[in-house]
Design a binder for these strands. Sequence first.
RNA 1: GCCGAUGUAGCUCAGGGGUAGAGCGCUUCCUUGGUAAGGAAGAGGUCGGGGGUUCAAUUCCCCCCAUUGGCUCCA
Length: 646
Amino acid sequence: MSLVNITLPDGSKREYESGVSSMDIAMSISEGLARNVLASKVNGEVWDASRPIVRDSDLSLLTWKDEEGKSTMWHSSAHLMAEAMEALYPGIKLAIGPPIDNGFYYDIDLMEHEVTEADLPKIEKKMIELARQKNQFARKEVSKKDALAYYEEKQDQYKLELINDLEDGQITFYTQGGFTDLCRGPHIPHTGFVKAVKLLSIAGAYWRGDEKNAMLTRIYGITFPKQGELETYLEMLEEAKKRDHRKIGKELELFTFDDDVGPGLPLWLPKGAFMIEQLEDLAKKTEKKAGYQRVKTPHIAKENLYLTSGHLPYYKDSMFPPMELDGSTYYLKSMNCPHHHKIFDALPKSYKDLPVRFAEYGTCYRYEKSGELFGLMRVRALQMNDAHIYCTKQQFADEFRAVNDMYLKYFKIFGIDKYIMRFSTHSPEKLGKKYVDNAKLWKETEDMVRDVLIESGIPYKEVPDEAAFYGPKIDVQIYSVIGREFTLATNQVDFAQPLSFDLTYTNANNESEHPIVIHRAPLGTHERFIGFLIEHYAGKFPLWLAPEQVRILPISDKFNEGCKNILQSLENYDIRASLDERGEKIGRKIRDAEMSKVPYMLIIGGNELDEGVVSIRKQGEGDQGKMKTEEFAEFIQQEVNKILAV
RNA sequence: GCCGAUGUAGCUCAGGGGUAGAGCGCUUCCUUGGUAAGGAAGAGGUCGGGGGUUCAAUUCCCCCCAUUGGCUCCA
């Protein structure tokens, strides 16, 4: 029997007989370790712990602590659920059941069966029952012919389709208990590792993600090796729900929707509108410093504008339907850029005028499909932190870099430290269909963007075939604290529209040339950004953004008059303060202020009024001692300036 | 747009073939209280909309609208 050298992650080497399994190796190290091994990683590939190793290999043992261990467990859990489903609902057809970031799902054609959320506990129970049998996951290589025959028998057209796409010789089946599934693996040693099961939701999903295909039933679930971990996870979900911007937005009276106004059309209540204005002030100051000029444009335009821009041919479906007026066809604008181009074109430009930077918090309307609307995150009326930069090729790199710097500056102000820049490029074979047909310019601009990104050391991920129709783009993906991922901002390069609008400037040689346009919106839309901020801060907005910064709470309403003077002093410092004049006890006033997440409370009774001081209570933190009224006002002012001075 | 769920007072929700309830909020009165809910009384709903079944519908059935979990999409 030959020997194999196994190298462990710490660099140590051990010798075993060829054909040894990862599990055998784990056993040889410690029995406790072996009990926790879910799978292994052999030469970088995740394997079943039972699979024989026949040559010298690097090995790491995967447990629940490893991401790959978790996903192996969840993948196996999907099989376990499928086994339970087959037992409970005979005749169902299985499609695919992969692990995901938090758990797993399985897409199933239920045939004549009906399964609702009320049935999930029943399925969970069956899964636990099967898990307790500690059935081993057995791997078997099968020929394509046998694999097809197996699913012919079951009349499972989904699996047949999957197998038909596979090469003979790479097809494996896994069997646990009485259940066999087409699967690449790997799997956990046996079902007994699954100790806690929660099926989370049931939803429709198109076969292979294509809306032309049949709708299957998708069941999402998650499993854990310990009951306690499941409970912790469920508590976390509850916490996340509490941060949901829709819930907090209602509680804090920031925005609302109304049936008579329409879906996806948010109404901003005074406090929400105030926050919008704060953001706009920030953006206006920042953009002014960066050399932007503000412009204003109407909400509608004639058809021809969008034919020129290319929006109508490419994006008609997501524009509101047209209005016919005086023999012309008008559309609600879904982008500000065509209007801005017309402003660029209104006056002749010399190379000495460039770069030109037009900024506008323009309101746009997009017809998002009804099922895509989601709180403030996906709406049909939106106001973008929009601007368009018109520059020469030589200026492009500097301009593009300056835009990226502006993004980073905002991230600092808002404490956004988790983000990814996605650099979306075009697919050459889709030129003229999805993308403007100009291969040379695509290459040039994509190279320029890539160069700037590499040069400025910004981490990015390149995604092919995701570009805008007029040029490559950078999307900034951010994550709210509750793990919701979304695209905050886009930064796009556009060489196509300057051509289609025939935008020109006169260069130093007295020749006419087309500028490059950069579309950028670091703060995205007000709607999405405020939605994000609500979840990011859990409604506890920083002082500069909080609609109400200070609430004065008199110990009893006897002191209301005295408190009015304090209110006046704070207002003289431009502090947004209010006075709780209700005849309630102080405990009650504090509770209400805490719940409205007012950053500072001032508790005022006879003592404070006599001494000319205020007793300060900080939201979420409690008593902060006393200060002179003016001193407190200056402190608040400084706190606000500190954040915005970044 | 597709599959599923939900829609009852301003909010959170209970109820259920005989025209409706709780808590909070709101109004009024009492209380004047020192760091997270003082007490009492009162107002407030064509039970999302439209049809149908029924002696009778908020409740059962159908259609629509909206919200929502996903899928697809997001210039």
